[in-house]
Design a binder for these strands. Structure first.
Lengths: 351, 351
DNA sequence: ATGAAAGCGCTAACAG
DNA sequence: CTGTTAGCGCTTTCAT
């Protein structure tokens, strides 16, 4: 409106101080809740707040962060945002953090070590306050350096055995153990386990639960590992699973170690024209909308998504808000899974 | 190791300048690719680069951004990261932007106006360089203020009719038009349309395509709107759809206006014990893993996810990198959908 | 080529 | 209570 229209300058703390005839320091104190502490009168504080509100002044967070060293940003480094498991966890974490005044930046690693290093390095440059990471393989060094630099960091979904750190994971071994036992109880004779090439803790745990159950029952194991790439499209993997199943028809049940393998596995089974569970029983690690609606419905080892999110953000915020570094205790949280029994694993009559 | 062990200070530009006996300015120029321009000898430039590499010096981005006003961060504000459509788009956008040196911060609006305002305001405080937004309802004012402040902003998936802005959307009307015609051709008599309460452009377009097809064919329309909340759990919606279908058995086909409605709709149909497509034909707007694997497979109006991502990031980066504000031309891009015909909409024999 | 220095906008210590 | 001031770490102009 005025003749200075084009000089659309943002309001600065200086502007508001001058307008009110108070000092910059006063404004800063009031804005940072230090009015009482600095013995600033309620009336004045009130006046400042009102004016700030009126002109819609927002402090420049860059300047603030540069000065204080705090950004109130948490970096969430997950495997793949297009995977419903991670998407849901991310969404929940974001929600919880938001309420506590923290913002989340999330990035997908695609389980790619180099990309993850980039990500961590970028986050460091931006001075985020803390990390929640689902680490891919080969990232010990970077995570260790985060830990050593005292940046609050919690690992999610999997941990790094060689490092002492906070983490929040799931008891995957128990999940697959229960799943395998359930299949055997249902009369399946030969249970195979389909997993990925990854040696990460969560995948290995799932494998171990399966192994334990089969060993206890004195059954032969069949473990098949596939290479899982992100964003590759389904053809390769589906046809590899297709061949595997076709060439191993003595196996009458399969446990898939994650939802991607399960989905591709179901596609392969459909293409083979096999009936579930008559020809082949199926259990998936990780639940999915699909499994409720598939015909037949698919038994799944469900992860406590809500609880994973809640615990990881809680642990992180606790570290973030505790001033002393004294309490160097690490929180390692292991959450139970639950077996959701549906049609794909039921040979005996439903009740 | 040394006695100054605890003073684990980050390397600063000053440190590296001093170590090399050059000026801070020189280092800065070299680091910012202005060596040539400043006529700095290749030898010197090389030396600087090598030392920087050696000590792993990383400029403090906060300081840099404060000084330059550029953050190289793009804010991606989408509806719901736990929806596979948005998750995939987000993942693709992140990937493309990453390669071009930009980082993405994404947040979900949950289609909640207040939260979106918060988000935009937080992004402004952090001085991000540009926005990609899937705007919820009631957000015209904030988006308009972004536009007026000359922040590059592209709208995604839907636009705001009252605003002149860049956007990248899909031709939803054509999608549902084709879908409805396909159903009628297959001999379905009464096609219903299930959508949400939202009046956003993408939802209204889908509705219009349906209306047009039915009007042209001289058929009666049946449009049902449901309230869709995020993160609410499925019970309420499933049972509402259940009742709707149960009370409208004269309709022998339904087009669901998005993937959430489709998934819940399929659940409702399963609970009702209806056969697809014999009792009821089904088409979903938006494809999903589930639909390929469902029995029968579900016909879907697929959105060109890759192309949506590519176009929106391209448009944004173009705005970001063009210096002059002269070319105030807006890019409005409308991408075609494709009808993927599967079992759920086929009454006539497959060929 | 380079050194000095002026900020970017804010916090917080210090002396009144 | 307030004014002044020294940075936070970097870019960039200017004079040399």
């Amino acid at each position: 409106m005025s003749s200075t229209d084009k000089v659309k300058k943002r309001t600065l703390i200086h502007d508001i101080a001058r307008h009110l005839n108070v000092s910059i320091a006063t404004v800063s104190f009031v804005l940072n809740g230090k009015a009482k502490e600095q013995r600033i009168s309620d009336a004045l504080a009130e006046k400042v707040l009102r004016y700030v509100e009126e002109v819609g002044y927002k402090p420049n967070q860059l300047a603030k962060s540069l000065r204080t060293g705090k950004t109130h940003v948490i970096g969430l480094i997950i495997e793949d945002i297009s995977n419903p498991f991670f998407a849901t966890v991310a969404w929940l974490i974001e929600k919880k953090a938001f309420g506590r005044g923290y913002r989340i930046i999330y990035c997908s690693t695609d389980n790619n070590t180099a990309k993850t290093k980039d990500l961590i390095s970028m986050f460091q440059e931006r001075h985020i306050d803390g990390y929640i990471i689902a680490p891919p393989e080969g990232i010990e060094e970077e995570v260790n350096s985060l830990l050593r630099s005292n940046k609050p960091t919690v690992l999610l979904d999997r941990y790094i055995p060689s490092l002492i750190s906070d983490y929040v994971v799931v008891d995957g071994a128990d999940g697959t153990y229960q799943a395998a036992r359930h299949l055997l109880e249902q009369g399946f004779e030969n249970v195979a386990f389909v997993t990925s090439e990854s040696r990460q803790t969560q995948m290995e745990a799932r494998l171990q639960g399966y192994s334990k159950a089969l060993d206890e029952a004195g059954r032969a194991k069949n473990i098949k590992r596939f290479v899982v790439n992100f964003g590759e499209g389904l053809e390769r993997l589906v046809s590899e699973i297709y061949s595997f199943i076709k060439n191993n028809r003595e196996y009458d049940a399969i446990i898939f170690a994650n939802n991607i393998l399960s989905i591709y596995g179901l596609e392969a089974i459909a293409r083979l024209g096999l009936r579930i569970p008559e020809d082949i029983g199926v259990i998936s690690f990780d639940d999915h909308d699909l499994f409720r609606l598939h015909s037949p419905t698919i038994t799944a080892i469900a992860q406590p998504v809500e609880s994973l999110a809640e615990n990881s953000i809680d642990v992180l915020l606790r570290k973030l808000e505790q001033t002393s570094e004294a309490e160097a205790l690490v929180d390692t949280i292991v959450l139970p899974t639950s077996l959701i029994i549906r049609g794909s694993s039921m040979r005996k009559s439903g009740r």
